[in-house]
């Protein structure tokens, strides 16, 4: 299992453009990708409904995970999107 732990820095949190870009990137993966925040079960990073409902605010930390060969490059891209100011 590969994972990245990042703090969301966007003023709007993981909503609007950051959320849409995050999900559009995740859906390109041929394997499952999940995103979780503390105390909340992981949800699919490929679902805009799930990501918006997770309601990640600025300053909150999330864990993005995937269990597949080649997941590292995708997780790096997702981590960069999520941590961009």
């Amino acid at each position: 299992m590969a994972e990245r732990k990042v703090t969301v820095m966007s003023e709007v949190g993981l909503h609007a453009r950051p959320a849409a870009t995050f999900v559009q990137t995740a859906v390109q993966a041929p394997f499952d990708v999940t995103v979780a925040k503390f105390g909340v079960p992981p949800v699919s990073a490929k679902s805009i409904l799930s990501v918006l409902a997770l309601d990640v605010r600025q300053g909150e930390t999330i864990v993005i995970s995937a269990d597949a060969d080649g997941a590292d490059e995708l997780l790096d891209r997702l981590a960069a999107i999520a941590s961009a100011p």
Binding site: A16, R17, A19, A20, T21, Q24, I48
Partner: peptide, 9 residues
């Protein structure tokens, strides 16, 4: 554009 380009759906 987040909405007009249907980025959210």
């Amino acid at each position: 554009p987040v909405f007009s380009q249907a980025m959210v759906g």
